[in-house]
Design a protein around this nucleic acid. Structure first.
Lengths: 246, 246
DNA sequence: AAGTGGTCTAGACCACTCT
DNA sequence: GAGTGGTCTAGACCACTTG
């Protein structure tokens, strides 16, 4: 990391703390500072950039507010470790209220196919590029509750094509991190209602055309690239979703 | 506002900026500093509390991050003005995509009734207390799209019981602010799936038992008290809702 | 004890908004 | 030009975590 241009960036009208934040952001999004790792101490950065403590702290505070960094008092500042996925499925209501058991995964299919234009646009790859497609159901209390279709860029996730699905855990995001070095940092979900096709209904042990909730998710890495597209269906009558709005 | 205790609070182990923030929070949540009003300048507060600029700024930053204050460079710091409600209904998809027209309101009923135990618990009043109940539909492109049931504490919202509904605008939150001095600061929504009763279906010009999305909202004022309970129903096939997760 | 982030000071100067 | 919030400095000291 070369600090020499920080002051010249400042001359160009940019704030010093913003210039420093941009440099740190580069270290993070490029992966040179990997998820979960500690970044240099504030006093180290202060000397490296030749600025006052307050300026370094302002830069770090900015990245903390963006969710890229986490401060831990007395220990250091760390690159945000990413989502496990467990917190993203708290929305379906099955069995006991307040029960946050992770549903068991049952992989039905893992195939390679080519991206449609729409999927390619979402994943930021070219139409016709290879993608991995996963079909799985997720079980709670011995019953299939959710049906998930997942698409991944085959190039980036080659380890997911080569490894044995039986060795995967119930949560896929830790697998992405461990096997492919891809950390999911945020996600965007769209909720709609529909009805189940006959094959999907059979997998969920529901009648064909049964009403279902459809949750379409795009998961993004720390650099803001979409890395996974996932469509989840479940019984509409067992669906509830809570959101806080400001 | 008496600043004399700030340093003594500090002695008690609390941080100075936290003690100051607590004082400012009191001015806001009590209504002494009303929504939309400017608070004293940083230099004024600095002198009043006898602390350095950085400490005042840290206190204000805390309240900004809580959504209680808004900074405007060169103009001042203001108490958050509250939600209009327009941003809360961007989620139903009707007509053209990206169209954010505000649906026209049609009041069907405004009655006084008594709170059930559940409603009273939500509104923070005693069971059996008087509440105002409003039934209205909301129209877009000449069609009824949403059916809303709204409950308000009759004591706090007496102006909504006395005024002529024909004089209300399509958005109720500005009416609450203007007529009752109640500002909606945040809201919590739960989404579920259901089917329409015959009377509700008739008002929405849909067949009885038609699938519907049910959005149940609690709206909170700046002090965190629930001031409105609202249940909205609309055609499930026209529903979509997008959320960002971190 | 050493190292980390957190708080606080006192003061200078910059950038934006309004009159 | 006057008043507001925004940036930056140089340094002191506090609170938390780990070896």
């Amino acid at each position: 990391m070369n600090a020499s241009t920080v002051h010249s960036l400042h001359e160009a009208g940019q704030r010093r703390y913003a210039a420093i934040a941009e440099r740190l952001r580069g270290e993070i999004t490029s992966g040179r500072w990997p998820a979960g790792a500690a970044i240099p101490a504030e006093t180290t950065l202060l000397a490296e950039f030749g600025v006052a403590l307050g300026t370094i702290r302002q830069a770090i505070t900015l990245l903390v507010s963006e969710g890229l960094l986490e401060r831990r008092h007395g220990r250091g500042t760390f690159v945000h470790a990413g989502l496990t996925g467990a917190s993203l499925l708290r929305f379906f209501r099955f069995g006991k209220e307040g029960d946050h058991e992770v549903p068991v995964s049952n992989i039905h299919k893992r195939t390679q196919t080519v991206a449609t234009a729409e999927l390619a646009a979402q994943l930021g790859i070219r139409a016709g590029a290879n993608v991995i497609h996963i079909l799985r159901s997720r079980w709670l209390q011995g019953e299939p509750r959710l049906l998930e279709r997942i698409w991944l860029d085959a190039k980036r996730f080659s380890a997911m094509a080569e490894s044995d699905p039986a060795t995967w855990g119930d949560l896929l995001y830790p697998e992405y991190a461990a096997r492919c070095g891809v950390v999911v940092h945020r996600a965007s979900e769209t909720i709609e209602f529909g009805t189940l096709t006959a094959p999907d209904a059979a997998l969920l042990r529901l009648p064909a055309k049964h009403p279902c909730a459809v949750v379409s998710r795009c998961a993004f890495d720390i650099a803001g690239r979409c890395v996974e597209v996932r469509v989840t269906r479940g019984d509409a009558n067992a669906f509830h979703y809570t959101v806080n709005l400001t």
